[in-house]
Design a protein around this nucleic acid. Sequence first.
DNA 1: AGCTGGCACTCTGCTGTGTTGAGTGCCAGG
DNA 2: CCTGGCACTCAACACAGCAGAGTGCCAGCT
Lengths: 338, 338
Amino acid sequence: MLSERRLEVLRAIVQDYVGTEEPVGSKALTERHSLGVSPATVRNDMAALEEEGFIAQPHTSAGRIPTDRGYRLFVDKLAGVKPLSGAERRAIQNFLDGAVDLDDVVGRTVRLLAQLTRQVAVVQYPSLTRSTVRHVELLSLAPARLMLVVITDTGRVEQRHVDCPAPFGDTALADLRARLNSRVAGRRFSDVPQLVQDLPESFETDDRGTVSTVLATLLETLVEETEERLMIGGTANLTRFGHDFPLVIRPVLEALEEQVVLLKLLGEAKDSGMTVRIGHENAHEGLNSTSVVSVGYGSGGEAVAKLGVVGPTRMDYPGTMGAVRAVARYVGQILAES
Amino acid sequence: MLSERRLEVLRAIVQDYVGTEEPVGSKALTERHSLGVSPATVRNDMAALEEEGFIAQPHTSAGRIPTDRGYRLFVDKLAGVKPLSGAERRAIQNFLDGAVDLDDVVGRTVRLLAQLTRQVAVVQYPSLTRSTVRHVELLSLAPARLMLVVITDTGRVEQRHVDCPAPFGDTALADLRARLNSRVAGRRFSDVPQLVQDLPESFETDDRGTVSTVLATLLETLVEETEERLMIGGTANLTRFGHDFPLVIRPVLEALEEQVVLLKLLGEAKDSGMTVRIGHENAHEGLNSTSVVSVGYGSGGEAVAKLGVVGPTRMDYPGTMGAVRAVARYVGQILAES
DNA sequence: AGCTGGCACTCTGCTGTGTTGAGTGCCAGG
DNA sequence: CCTGGCACTCAACACAGCAGAGTGCCAGCT
């Protein structure tokens, strides 16, 4: 096991490297941190830390930089979560309070997170697996063409066109609308298929085809809705990556454009509590030199979606984690209120 | 005025520079293009072109690169619009045909444009200034809480919560819904304010407050809807900017994140026909080393929104213009069909 | 008048060579 | 177990020399 002081040395190395972006040597370390020992001793400690794989040297006779494993130890054992200042909290509150609808909430959250952490922010839309249908609306666009609108309790609205196999009368339409709502309003997405199963039978033979088509579209819409969507922002912060960034930035941008990749990324994180994935711990290759800090958020006790940031492994973990956690809490509050 | 051959020299310089990304000299030019004259002659022409400000040398004894003004002349006089290949056209068609709703159409368009041009794509959502209201829906969420849903003919759906000053009965609600729709359905946004002006008067005194509130929210929603939104994609293509890109990429990413900036950018373009803004012609400072190629698109004859790409001034203008124009056409078709 | 070959000149970019300095590992002594 | 000392390594920088691409200009040719 590593001695207390060696851990302290590792902490110092991480802090300095994060600050200066340059390999840190034994002398500089003793000067900046009062470790109470000489550079030579620190050198021995460093050798041990390197032996264990927590730090590495880019080349002989250069200082050390933390490895992914070093960062891992740092966030697990050495770093706390830095709480935000009162001013920052108030700023978050104010900024989020102005949101008018769900898109706006998510949009503001992304911008907020990006600004606060100075990194790339990713916010997943509230998931709908546990959400309920608030209302279903049916409109007639043409004799054999309907529009189906589904409104969810998280404030999402989705609409689909439906081409009917046969013309569909206004009274039948009103009938279907009423019955549909009485059955599914307030129910969970997952329950809907059962609830509407026998609906076609209660209609005239002529109309059954249309009713079935409408129901099929409804179910399809709900499934699609369950697939999470997300929003990203703060990509300009990618330029803070470091000097070698031309090589690194490309795959990151590519990964960020693929929603599937990001969803998988967030999906890999724990459902509750904060998750930090460092460098190669990320499954996606392009993100091997980035770290992802994510956390679930939700309106009630349970988390309905996740949000987080993507940045260089060389990041200020305590600060970033603090910001991510704080933002998640406030967003949860906002969602609960609306 | 510039002689025919000098224009030809300029064209050759632009083409070579776009291809190689390196200053092009007189000798290389005569070798690659059969201009029928010697390097010495070309040198004289180059001197003249430089005199006029169409080309410049990064430093003495280097080749020439086109200036913004040079590119301008190139696209105005020397370059055609390169039509897409049949295969490309079919690919566009297929890809866009799969779209299920407006968001999907826009999303696919962005990806398509980015891939086709290998640049950053920007697509504005169909503008609603000329669009009409298809349907207005009112739902009761709680005794004194309503939800207002507005559906437009371009397939957009927007919803707002309305807090009523007083409880509002179901019959009054149905009444309001019916009257509202009979007045505004099929009408243009701009006409709505007039059409609903006197609506509160026809209701019971108790309900007038609520009716006014609903109307106010409706008008507000329509105004907000008129403010265009947009989607961008292909930011990974920014890495193709060139060697000096760390300096350039930052302001570009920042500009791209500010929807306002992009909207202004597209707004500056002509309503009809293709617009190419080169380098410093762009008002926004961060985009001074980029060119923006944009064009209006729409379902019918008139353009309801714009789309385009942002790339380095050193871009393949004919190809880019061809792709942008083609995509705009197909999107217009898709919108017209749905 | 306009084009061409020739020539002297100017730079950037590459390569090779010291030189510097931060940083290391190791060891003997406290 | 810590410390000071010492020899060693190696990236980074500066400097010089060279090669090559490119230019401008001029005298001669068509």
